[in-house]
Design a protein around this nucleic acid. Structure first.
Length: 337
DNA sequence: AAGTGCGGCAACCGCTCTCGC
DNA sequence: CGCGAGAGCGGTTGCCGCACT
């Protein structure tokens, strides 16, 4: 089925707006509000389609639009929000009063993205890029950078992200150890819905990590619903999310609201994590993501390899080990807890 | 001064979502 | 429930100005 575009009338003007057109649009909206965008151009005496008028108004003519360069703080917020929301520019724009989604998108594509790439990071996942060239670049950067004194918004955000990623990996390892200890799969009986998500507190995260009762991500009862309510949402993905959300919320209270909203929503039975698409995948995407769950795949949803089966967890583990087989790497992680 | 390349940004395109019938 | 119109959103394009040769 071919749908006719709303602006297929060849007589309608396209391209840059003239000051006269701007004035007409502003005058009309000031007097009458925009009402129906489709009807507006005729009523305002403009030879444009309604869509074009709406874009011009929301991206340029709106009186509350903030112009000029993005501040460091704004950049920091954008990076953090992007790590949580992905390319949801309109959602990000909500947190930056006076900035439009289009402006933020352009800023990301022309400035921030470039910085990510220069640092050898994938701007989509905020993770190190897999290709060799970028790894070489990254190692060079690491050799020259003093990471204990990071000051730029991007570096700040990236350091936090690294911490979050480590937490995710630890969670994955924890799941595997639990399987080994109990001989059961981690996969939750979704229909039964009685899985106790919050486990008993243990003296130290490391002990919990070793014996499979870690509460690394569930110490805050607000962030840890006793039961994970939503069929189709895997424990792994939830904990992955909490790892990040705790990380962000701890460090930046103001920004944590988005994350807390997510977690609160998560506690309601009607909430669908897939609708929010909270995070880019933090661990490698397993092959079955594309074949088994076509809906998720189609929606480009984060399909985390801690998916609800033992095999998936081990596959994810295998992928992780491919990435980081160094014993010292894991010693480094474990040594922190 | 003219030509060229590049970056930034406004605007467009097409898909998805929402809502009313 | 299905359909269509309108609105919103994200990706992409193309113009413009600036720097460099």
């Amino acid at each position: 089925m071919v749908r006719s575009p709303c602006c297929d009338d060849g007589s309608l003007k396209k391209g840059p707006w003239t000051p006269d057109e701007d004035q007409k649009l502003v005058d009309y909206i000031k007097r009458h509000g925009h009402g129906s965008w489709r009807a507006l151009p005729k009523l305002a005496g403009l030879n444009r389609c309604g869509k074009s008028c709406r874009l011009r108004w929301t991206n340029y003519l709106r009186p509350d639009i903030k112009r000029g360069k993005f501040s460091d703080e704004e950049e920091r917020i954008i990076i953090k929000l992007h790590s949580v929301l992905g390319n949801k520019w309109s959602r990000i724009a909500v947190h930056l009063p006076g900035r439009t989604d289009n402006e933020i998108k352009n800023f990301w594509n022309t400035h921030v993205k470039k910085k990510f790439l220069q640092m050898g990071l994938d701007p989509n996942t905020h993770q190190p890029r897999a290709d060799l060239n970028s790894l070489v670049n990254l190692s060079q950067l690491l050799a020259t950078a003093n990471f204990s004194n990071l000051t730029s918004p991007l570096e700040d955000a990236l350091r936090l992200q690294t911490d979050a990623t480590r937490l995710t990996k630890i969670q994955l390892l924890q799941n595997i150890l639990q399987i080994i200890n109990t001989g059961s799969t981690l996969s939750r009986n979704i229909e039964g819905a009685s899985h106790q998500w919050s486990r008993n507190l243990t003296p130290t995260p490391l002990e919990g990590f070793v014996n499979g009762t870690s509460t690394l991500y569930t110490e805050d009862p607000m962030l840890a619903p006793a039961e994970f309510p939503n069929p189709g949402v895997t424990p792994g993905s939830h904990n992955d999310y909490q790892a990040i959300s705790n990380s962000w919320a701890c460090i930046d209270g103001g920004f944590g609201s988005e994350v807390h909203n997510f977690n609160n929503n998560c506690s309601s039975s009607s909430y669908d994590i897939r609708a929010e698409q909270p995070l880019p995948a933090l661990v490698s995407v397993s092959p079955e993501c594309s074949s088994v769950n076509q809906t998720e795949s189609k929606m480009n949803l984060p399909c985390i390899s801690t998916h609800s089966s033992t095999s998936n967890i081990f596959e994810a583990w295998g992928e992780l080990m491919d990435d980081e087989t160094s014993v010292s790497y894991w010693k480094d992680i474990l040594g922190q807890y």
